[in-house]
């Protein structure tokens, strides 16, 4: 009978041993990993379409004609180019207005809510202003179009303006291009203003209360406290969100423009995402639409990386 050695010579732990030991974890996770790769990474192969004259009905996937950067050139010159540049302008304009109005709206609301001493009233206001965030864009677009309609169709805005004597005839808000950017920005404001205060209110709770006490002793009034203590206290939050929003400036939404846009305002309403939809899905010009999509993704990635870099430089936590 041989005695077992007390200490086995230590086996070298190889990757294969680890994998064998963790096979249950692998079975639980790797299928989901493959699933994600299929749904989020495999479509990137489709980017090749942007460098081809892609005609799925005529030729097979492997026999497409390569055209280099032709489609990207087409995005910026000629008739398509005019339309694309217009849509790019609309995307940037609508995003910009949405960001600016959104900031003014939610920061001021957060500041004012912070001044409310009656907790119950504050809670009620918060719960009411958060609510539109949970309504779908379909519903919001319906509400917006009703509110902007002529008075007999429920258009409260025209109704009020007429009663105040500011206008004589109802304004056809949704048929005039010049209002469209504002309508998009205000719809976003209405929907998200309350919800976006959450992050500022959270930042405000982190401000040291002794700062306020010291300010009172120094004779600061309410506005001075808001301006010199509360606002600087949430400055880093504001900066981070601003940078992040600029990074996503090409994401102007889709649904609100699609629902409220119509032939009369298309000049100001159409954004890049709708361009992609119209050319790609509706006209079947996959190549040009994909090129537009790539342009958008690449610019977004550059902007986000820049935003991330700037945030890091400013001493803020990296966003990505």
């Amino acid at each position: 009978m041989t005695t077992q050695p007390l200490a086995q010579p230590k086996k070298k732990k190889t990757v294969w041993h680890t994998i064998a030991a963790q096979k249950e974890l692998i079975i639980m996770s790797v299928p989901l990993l493959l699933y994600k790769i299929l749904f989020s990474y495999v479509p990137v192969v489709g980017w090749t379409m942007a460098f081809q004259n892609y005609k799925p009905a005529v030729r097979s996937f492997w026999k497409q004609e390569w055209v280099g950067f032709d489609n990207f050139v087409k995005l910026f010159v000629g008739l398509n180019g005019e339309r694309f540049l217009r849509d790019l302008r609309n995307t940037l304009g609508q995003s910009f207005l949405t960001i600016v109005l959104g900031y003014i709206g939610s920061i001021s609301l957060a500041l004012l809510l912070n001044e409310v001493k009656n907790i119950k009233f504050k809670k009620v206001v918060q719960n009411i202003t958060y609510m539109p965030h949970f309504l779908s864009w379909v519903i919001v677009a319906g509400l917006v179009s009703t509110m902007l309609a002529i008075p007999t169709s429920g258009g409260i805005i025209n109704d009020v303006l007429i009663r105040l004597g500011l206008i004589k005839e109802p304004i056809m808000f949704l048929s005039e291009p010049k209002y469209f950017w504002w309508i998009v920005a205000c719809s976003n404001l209405w929907k998200e203003m309350g919800w976006n205060t959450i992050i500022y209110l959270a930042a405000m709770t982190a401000i040291d209360p002794t700062l306020y006490e010291a300010a009172v002793i120094d004779g600061a009034n309410r506005y001075q406290k808001m301006w010199h203590i509360t606002l600087p206290g949430i400055k880093s939050t504001i900066v981070v969100l601003l940078i992040m929003n600029v990074g996503h400036i090409l994401e102007a939404g889709f649904e609100i423009q699609y629902f409220l846009g119509n032939g009369l305002v298309v000049e100001m309403a159409e954004i890049i995402d709708i361009f992609v939809l119209r050319y790609g899905i509706q006209m079947g010009n996959y190549s040009l639409a994909t090129a537009a999509g790539i342009f958008k993704t690449v610019v977004s990635i550059i902007l986000i990386s820049m935003a991330n870099f700037i945030a890091g430089r400013l001493g803020e936590e990296k966003l990505v």
Binding site: L38, V42, G46, M49, D273, L277, G280, G293, K296, T297
Partner: peptide
């Protein structure tokens, strides 16, 4: 942070 885009996703 990135998305292949509408058309490639649709084709998938």
């Amino acid at each position: 942070y990135f998305n292949a885009g509408l058309i490639p996703n649709y084709l998938l």
